[in-house]
Design a binder for these strands. Structure first.
Lengths: 344, 344
DNA sequence: TAGAACAGAACAATCGTTTGCGCCAGTGGA
DNA sequence: TCCACTGGCGCAAACGATTGTTCTGTTCTA
């Protein structure tokens, strides 16, 4: 049953019913008796104003899109939960899209989200090759918040991690433990955060007086097999690094798998640090030293930005705003002193 | 720019533009030239029909709701990803809702989803106390598929795991290894799947001739602290079980944490089996023996049911349909022979 | 050459709300 | 008595599409 039927049934105008049901009764000076009558009837017949009509009229859907590379990645699922929770109170729904870490899929989904004319969008971009995405974003008049990445040259709000600092944190910890040869396992080749983290590692090594060829980097994808290939590349050789940093996702699992296969003891023969901290990190074999991101805080900032953007006049130009958060290190048992060159 | 503006600009009727842009040009015998002209202009001015108008007219939103207890739980995030992926091809969007494993929140969200007049709903209910939910579902005329649970007495499609069988699988494995005293850590007290799994464990024990007091059960919640309390209840006593089955979620982490604190070696002094299989299960300390659910398959079946329900006439009664899938066991190193009663 | 048949496009109703404005009836003041 | 004011509500125009029906020309047939 819809408003007009209810109105007819009560012998009132639709407008009156609408005003009462949308909670604007007194604003429009509907008498208390009439209001109660409508409320009671609505309750009885289970009448809820169809948001579709309202959306059409108001030009706002009450829904935003959330585009993530992989909802299966705990970082993003935590993000999604926090975001949905926060927006719920503002009566804003969240449409979920998963780009499977594929740049083209991401672009396609972005278009779909645009076509749906959502009120806004929170996107955690897949890759660093943000040209395509950058164009799409610029040509869209939709409030957008970028999370987990900064897109250079784009005037939009973003909340991200200081990835270089995070990488540095990991490397400094290893260097302090005595490591000189460090390996890094990238996730997707295109991931900008991985690149930044890598840069942080390089900086730390440079500051410690280590040369470029003390660093080896591998990994061309975030799938299990790609990660395993990368792990193999790092570990299956004579001059293998004494410590590995896995820069994202579940790369750590590949490193552990390969190390197990090679019979390498951790941390005696190989030290590892993993991005990101997970509930099970303390229970891995060995308990993992990890770099931890403030996920909930990131979600909160993103929502704050988004709400601000939604409050703006829709034809106002996108505002730039940048929030950069810091990672921290969780020290456990997966880092030890390097072996005295057992391979020499 | 919308269809009517474009129509005006081209000096054509809105209807013609609409027919072309919705791909029904030839069905309505629009001439090739006109069609091309419209297509070109639409491209140039970036005109996409607003789905809102279309939805209003067609009475369908092209979107379903997905209501899960905890998107952070890998089981549900995998589910979400599979579902979103499959529905994407049918041009159906997914709205995500997370009930935080709270029955009241779940009910509230359910109402919200109903109010949004989505095309359908896939719900993985939180608890076994499905009375409230059951009423809500019955009174709604929305196509609904229940996943991960069967709601008794309700004529709607559901896809679930044979939880009793899964529990039996775990218990039989332990019994075969020689265990006589088994403990189970529940997640939420209300979780129906946990109860079923528990029933399976009991059955297996009964069949092996074990008595009721050989089984101890604990756990009143899925939060970390609740799980820890449960783990403590099971492990901090003289006659503690020689083996533990964690019936859901991340209970296994609590057991590991408590076992570590007590200095219990696994599997020498304590055997464990965990629901569910995870990517990191092989890399835990020790590698975990787990019960694995066919997540992707469950998602596929749910989507199949949902699509069927969407295709039905909307005023047709909900059809019952039930798909029950089987779990399997992944044997690793967390199960061993029981200690010869070190506590005797 | 009239009539049918058909291609091509316009008309207008419809989906369900929201909201600016106008109408009517009391009430109080002058 | 007349006017101004206000409380209470209805009217009707949006919002943006879809689609059954109708209208106008052609072209083909008899």
């Amino acid at each position: 049953m819809n408003l007009s039927e209810l109105a007819q049934h009560l012998d009132l105008a639709i407008s009156t019913v609408s005003r009462v049901l949308s909670g604007n009764a007194k604003k429009y000076r509907i008498s208390e008796t009439t209001a109660q009558r409508i409320l009671a009837a609505a309750e009885e017949h289970n009448v809820i104003p169809d948001p579709l009509g309202a959306s059409l009229r108001k030009g706002s859907l009450g829904m935003i899109g959330l585009l993530v590379p992989d909802i299966t990645n705990p970082f993003f699922s935590h993000l999604a939960r926090s975001i949905e929770l926060e927006l719920r109170d503002a009566n804003i729904a969240v449409q979920l899209c998963d780009s499977s870490e594929e740049v083209e899929t991401e672009a396609r989904l972005f278009q779909k989200l645009l076509a749906r004319r959502l009120d806004g969008l929170i996107i955690a971009p897949v890759g660093s090759d943000t040209r395509g995405l950058s164009d799409l974003i610029e040509n869209s008049k939709m409030p957008i918040v970028v999370i987990d990445r900064v897109i250079p040259g784009l005037q939009i709000p973003s909340v991200s991690l200081d990835n270089a600092h995070a990488g540095k944190l990991a490397a400094e910890h290893l260097i302090k433990a005595g490591h000189r040869k460090i390996g890094c396992l990238r996730g997707s080749y295109e991931s900008q955060s991985d690149q930044e983290r890598l840069r942080g590692v390089q900086e730390a090594m440079a500051e410690a007086g280590l040369k470029g060829d003390d660093l080896s980097v591998a990994g061309k994808g975030s799938s299990r097999t790609a990660s395993l290939d990368g792990a193999r590349e790092l570990l299956d050789r004579k001059d293998r690094p004494t410590a590995i940093v896995t820069l994202s996702g579940q790369g750590i699992l590949a490193v552990l798998e390969r190390a197990t296969a090679l019979g390498l003891a951790i941390p005696e023969q190989l030290s590892v640090i993993a991005f990101d901290e997970q509930p099970w990190s303390p229970f891995m074999n060995p308990p993992l030293t990890t770099i931890s991101q403030p996920v909930a805080e990131m979600a909160g900032e993103a929502v704050k930005f988004l709400k601000a953007a939604l409050a703006e006049k829709s034809d106002a130009p996108l505002k730039a705003a940048e929030k950069v958060l810091q990672a921290s290190i969780c020290e456990r048992l997966s880092v030890g002193k390097p072996v005295i060159s057992a391979t020499k």
